[in-house]
Design a binder for these strands. Structure first.
Lengths: 352, 352
DNA sequence: ATGAAAGCGCTAACAC
DNA sequence: GTGTTAGCGCTTTCAT
């Protein structure tokens, strides 16, 4: 490899500590501590000298050391564990959470588990080892009981997008079952009978709920449920596209699709366009996306409110950390909104 | 507010420390330390007892305290400061960075500055106070000289997407000037003369570079440069859409658009569709997006490679932290790829 | 109004 | 092999 010490690579100067500041200002370290924490009992004269020393030495407090001894032990950092920080839905929540956190002087340790139950555990351990004051989790593991010990010891946890199980953790999410039911009913009302459901892996709470919602609507309408029209495990647009392709080639293909999330919608639309069926097969996506109105036909969706979910989750987390809200509680549902754009208003007869 | 102590809100048990483990295992604390760090000189017998005590007490090491005394002082955490964690381009980089970091046992403290120069400073202070081993920054402030002191004291910094100024910090980014030039040349080659450039705020490095690239291509082709066709400051799809609308209503409107980024492209396409001009006005976007192929007409783009940028930046950061690479160095360009999909291949005569 | 000493949970240095 | 002591940079306690 390239050797060390090119321009700008001088030996790092020793760390500046509160002790250096105290020495330069000619005071004791406790006085420095008082100044930086705004505690009383420091004469304005000494305070000024201390502040000068701080700027002169360019000293910045070490938050780790500070919290090690502090009474409340707060780290002013929260953990955030999502499916993936690059998923648009998750990223939107992330941003809302960050805004609330930043307003309170909190930083966010963000990571992804890729909907792999095992990685929820390892990623969580990495977060907890850094002693965060709270965690916002999009759960994927079959149970979150493993968190109970830490919760008993004072850890605060809130779940988002999905309900936890095995531990009394509050959650903020859409009512996924209702959302899927609304999407399905919308198609039924347009006269569709053969409606396919494309959804994600069944170990994801939302995928299970959406399946129930779909079944609710079909049963309520007295429609026959054809299990071959229900396809799960579609974790990428590619899988979703392939599944759509297969569905379109069966004996009696569906006339409408309900797509369980963003990525599934994109994969399905791509396939419909390739087969030139996009104006014949109705489609309702769950979860909105930026360009849904620009596609031909524009995509009808049941929109979720990711930033509202994120904001509420962060509010709840901090209220729990503050002790103004209990550390357990019932799930909170955030409304979803049906947005009719065209793809969901195609009738069943279009291709006949 | 709701009072405290509902179900599941028992008084937090005292923190478990290495001392509790030592006491239960009947050994000294140093022996526990040896076991958890895999150091030699511990009999297998005692090691087993210690491990039992650890699981029995559900003890987990406090990474803060650990790093406070450790020789290298590493926190095994890096900071990431982006325009916004919810921007698709940034989120993609974020994910790639997280992957590299997680592989090395590092966690990522992520935050957003919303392209506000002042917030780069405050967000950076929040990160540095938590004593990260390195920072990956998408710069927006006019100068990054403020980081020099921390760099001299051992902080490692890498910039992404944009070049820094005022400090010798390596950067990984696309060649924004070339990308814009490629986009513009592509349109010129199709016969366009009046080509508009829609871009972002000029205090963003990429926006400036893209302007240069556009001018390069126009000049090289000997085309007249009409300043009224160059619109900056378009930080949202709404602003971009409004600017596009205005451009389409001027005396001698452009026949083609170059869009400086994702959001600008979306806003412009939305306006073109509203004016029913999407098949008459050519458009090339810089930066690809998931649904670019699903829009009518499909959007031609000069695609960037955000995850490659992220991966390279993280690799570089860790090499610098390891000391195998100098802490300063020249910028690294990541290639861009022209993807012809339709919108960029429309000729200038379509609407005449 | 100020500072010395103890301690947060852990690792480093040096005993035994 | 094992334990004791000191110390990381800060806050707390308590004396002055």
């Amino acid at each position: 490899m390239t050797p060390l010490s090119p321009p700008g690579n001088e030996p790092p100067e020793a760390r500046v500590t509160i002790r250096d500041v105290a020495r330069l200002a000619g005071v004791g370290i406790k006085t420095v501590s008082r100044v930086i924490n705004g505690e009383p009992n420091v004469s304005e004269h000494t305070a000024v000298r201390v502040r000068q020393a701080i700027t002169q030495l360019r000293w910045e407090p070490d938050i780790r050391a500070r919290n090690l001894r502090r009474a409340d032990g707060r780290t002013h950092t929260i953990g955030l564990l999502l499916g993936s920080v690059s998923n648009p839905f998750a990223a939107e929540m992330h941003r809302a959470i960050e805004d609330v956190a930043a307003n309170r002087g909190y930083a966010v340790l963000a990571s992804s588990h890729d909907d792999d139950p095992a990685r929820e555990g390892t990623a969580m351990a990495a977060i907890l080892g850094r002693r965060v004051d709270g965690v916002i989790l999009m759960p994927i593991a079959a149970s979150q009981a493993y968190l109970q010990t830490d919760i008993d010891r004072g850890l605060t946890v809130v779940c988002v997008d999905r309900e936890p199980s095995g531990a009394l953790i509050p959650s903020i999410r859409s009512d996924a079952r209702v959302a899927a039911s609304v999407a399905t009913r919308h198609l039924i009302r347009r006269g569709h009978h053969r409606i396919a459901l494309l959804h994600d892996d069944e170990n994801i709470w939302t995928a299970r709920e959406r399946r129930y919602g779909y079944l609710d609507a079909m049963r309520f309408a007295g429609l026959e449920i054809d299990e071959s029209l229900i396809v799960g495990g579609l974790s990428t647009p590619e899988l979703s596209g392939a599944a759509s392709d297969r569905l379109m080639r069966i004996q009696d293909p569906p006339t409408a699709l309900v797509c369980g999330n963003n990525l599934i919608t994109i994969g399905a639309v791509r396939t419909l366009q390739r087969l030139s069926l996009q104006h014949d097969i109705a489609l309702v996506g769950i979860d909105d996306f930026d360009t849904a109105d620009l596609i031909a036909p524009p995509i009808t969706v049941v929109a979720q409110r990711p930033s509202q979910i994120g904001r509420l989750a962060a509010d709840q987390l901090f209220a729990m950390i503050d002790g103004t809200l209990p550390r357990s509680g019932p799930p909170i549902s955030v409304p979803t909104d049906l947005i009719e754009r065209g793809s969901g208003e195609i009738g069943p007869g279009s291709s006949d």
